[in-house]
Amino acid sequence: MADMTVEQARKGGAGSLTRFLRNIFLRNLSAKIAAAPMMATVLVVFVGCTIWTIWYSFTNSRLLPSGDFVGFEQYQRLFATRRWNVSVTNLVTYGAFSLVFTMVFGFLLAVLMDQKIRFENAFRTIMLYPFALSFIVTGLVWQWIMNPSLGLQGTMRNLGWTGFTFDWLTNPRMVLYALLIAGLWQGVGFVMILMLAGLRGIDGEIWKAARVDGIPTWRTYLSIVLPMMRGVLVTAVVLVGSGIVRLYDLVVALTDGGPGIASEVPAKYVYNYMFGAGNIAQGLAASTMMLLTVMIIIIPWAYLEFGGKGNRK
């Protein structure tokens, strides 16, 4: 039956469409009906909306989408806008620090947690609970702690350390590191858990062998364990990385882009142009750039994970 359909489709001019349509109605009908929401989501949202956004980023849509093509004009304007360039620089700076620190601290904490310590559950609970909280809550707590007059700085000065300065929220050069402190607080526990799972997955024989050969512990971690944890490390980098590109809520809650535009990020630029400034195409162009950034992270990863092995046919 299926063979006949294929043959017909090959003969027929309609080609793959006919085959596709026949296949839809002939086999596993209820499964296809059940999977309809998934197919609709994939086709309409993930594929359709993305293509729509890219398409309309080449128009001059302002309050409403319009069809007047202007080529790369929106992109030229985008990179001529100071706020966008500051946003991109901020994201790169924040992203680099955030990625490195999250991974390093996450790994170190996981190594410490893996030393057969007591109270492991308590430590784990304490390190992971911020991850259950929203970025809004995270941002607002740290905003209060870093409040220059009544927070940590004010407290230290009142306690007698008059030269103590911790004014990162009002200091344009330091505000990104304020974001970093809050972001790490929220996310390190998660990476620690991932890394710990990775460490636990390593065969105990490896450790015995390394000990027999007299390799120092730190060397074993660096040269043997870390390369063996490649899968976990890559997953963590991809998850943390795609989280960084989306960075939005935390900035809104902690600094709202301030002081001035010192802590603006691309996601906030997109939102403001789409829903605030009434310049849709500009927001769409900015969001297309965000998409491009994610693709640059994801495609090499996908290639490494699924391309070489060929186990996913």
């Binding site: 989501t41 994939v42 949202v45 359709g48 996601a267 997109v270 939102y271 789409m274 965000m290």
Partner: peptide, 19 residues
Amino acid sequence: FFTILIFGSFIPYQVMLYP
């Protein structure tokens, strides 16, 4: 469909927001 779905989860929400 499943593969696109999984890769779709990495697309920034901002890209699909306006549509």
